[in-house]
Amino acid sequence: MTHSLVSAATLLGLCACGMVGIGLYGLIVRPDALRKLLSFNILGSGVFLLFGVIGRRGAAAGLEGDPVPQAIVITGIVVAFSATALAATLLVKISDAENALPDAGREEDEA
């Protein structure tokens, strides 16, 4: 137990909040799909960091490091990776389709 002003877990928890805030802002405000995707990854990393903090605080059994949040983070990372890969594939396909037919899908770009 350290007696410093803030413990490491609290500090990391605040970092996690910051990342969630930045990611959420980017996801909502940025019009560009690629930036939205990157914002989603920042937001996701913030949530994973929060799980790390929760595990560190040993919510379940008072352990030094609770393994359940760690297991959740591993699964979460796999899911976030798959989601990013799927979105990136869609982005590539969109640019392919639009380069082949420059006018196709133009009207749906807005809104």
Binding site: A33, K36, F40, A104
Partner: peptide, 19 residues
């Protein structure tokens, strides 16, 4: 391209929801 855009928008909304 139209349906790809629709799918991407769906995915982004869904990802925000899941996170």
């Amino acid at each position: 391209a139209t349906t790809l855009h629709a799918a991407l928008r769906y995915l982004l909304f869904a990802l925000l929801g899941s996170v």
